[in-house]
Nucleic acid binder design. Structure first.
Lengths: 245, 245
DNA sequence: ACAAAAGTGTTCCAGGTACACCCATGA
DNA sequence: TCATGGGTGTACCTGGAACACTTTTGT
């Protein structure tokens, strides 16, 4: 308490404004050049990598906190967000790592500092348009950048298992409309969306079957021929159909 | 803090032993006489009903806390437990209701008491064998009894939506083996398990199709005929097959 | 013998997979 | 005109739904 006394009400280091022992971690998915990517933060002056996350303000819904983190890291609002699991093992805290982070940031601390205590973390995953995002580091990190999901550096605490769980849920929801709608550009070809699905699932899909399944779903709307490029027939372009149409 | 000073370390009223602002709520499903039931607590000397729940000790995994609550309410260990969602809206707290509960229990309190603050609650659902459970109230409640899911009394806070969410997840997992294995007696007939599925889903299922689907799943093992009192052919009895067999 | 419920065979249909073939386009 | 990728037709398979029929048992 004394340690925080000189902090202003809104200073991010002031633990008193947050729900104690509670955080959100965000697995932020993007898709670019046939690769599924997630945003990873690197703490200042350390070799520690982590998922973007944050604390929950006392009067804030948890999902609002997740949206705030998302906005601060990507500059995007109104993004698709899905709470998928809450990580609450008593030993998931890693005081040594947190202390080295604080040391590297010149934050006064000791073993009883609120940031090195046990945290329960609510996991959200987000689907965002890679080209619209403008990844930005936060107060503690020197970078926040995209990594291919197959090339993620070693993450602190249990963040690797958080990513794993997010991927599992994402894969099990692959047939829901929102996945392509949020990760792809507005207009896309059948080949584009098939590649996206293949990348997420990590397996090849039957071309004609996929084609027909997509058309039968009623979610796609053909908006006209053409898309120049290769020496072959021009594919149709599609957009996701609004539900009410 | 002063208010807790005279409490012993292990007194359930001593907030210092718990993770602040965090709780678990359990939707405990049982099945009896073709009805899907859940356990509901009634607070002493009030008309307030709630889901069985509890707080998380400082060195306890959240799932351990849920198991502890389950054991205290049912006397059962090793029960099927599934974390399904975390309820974190800032306004889900209901200070008036909690204060009336504490008043009815002669617990000294004021608006700043830890139990009337905002809580984040991690939702678990459990599947238990109705006949083995021995429902027992906790420190604050005068009863803990089974209610048909269609006849649940008005619940405090957002517990009705917690039940709704649990039911949704249970229904979407209906084809997983564990549902029948945990809710039915060890031996059962095809009609028994079909009735269970129909009760959970709230719809009639095709008899022969269900029969064949169950047999094809490879999860059931026929263990012999059942002698009934009915004037009709005796059905086979089944048990759930262990995975390794 | 009959009613009632259980078990099984047959048929039909929808969705998925596989293969084939045609279409459009740039070199 | 040829190679290449895109779109669609046809055949096949599987799993579920619907219906019929047989089996068993108490009355």
């Amino acid at each position: 308490m004394k340690k925080d006394a000189k902090l202003t009400e809104s200073d991010p280091l002031n633990g008193a404004q947050y729900m104690p022992g509670l955080s959100v971690d965000c697995v932020i998915f993007g898709y670019h050049e046939n690769e599924l990517k997630i945003l990873i933060s690197k703490f200042k002056n350390t070799h520690l990598y982590s998922l973007p996350g944050g604390f929950i303000k006392k009067s804030e819904d948890i999902s609002e906190a997740a949206r705030r983190v998302l906005f601060e890291r990507t500059g995007l609002k109104d993004i698709f967000l899905n709470q998928f699991y809450t990580f609450g093992e008593s030993k998931r805290a890693n005081p040594e790592a947190m202390m080295s982070v604080m040391k590297a940031n010149d934050i006064p601390f000791d073993e009883s500092h609120w940031m090195v205590q046990r945290f329960i973390s609510v996991g959200y995953f987000a689907l965002i348009n890679y080209t619209r995002a403008d990844p930005a580091p936060d107060h503690f990190s020197e970078s926040c950048t995209w990594y291919d999901v197959d090339e993620i550096p070693e993450l602190m605490q249990d963040h690797a298992s958080i990513v794993e769980k997010a991927l599992t849920v994402l894969r099990s929801n692959i047939d829901q409309a929102f996945i392509g709608a949020n990760l792809l550009q507005e207009q896309f070809t059948m080949a584009d969306i098939q590649k996206l699905h293949e990348t997420i699932l990590g397996e090849k899909l039957n071309r004609t079957g996929f084609h027909r399944k997509m058309l039968n779903s009623g979610l796609l709307k053909r908006i006209g021929k053409k898309k120049t490029g290769g020496s072959h027939r021009a594919p149709y372009l599609y957009v996701f159909q609004s539900i009410e149409e």
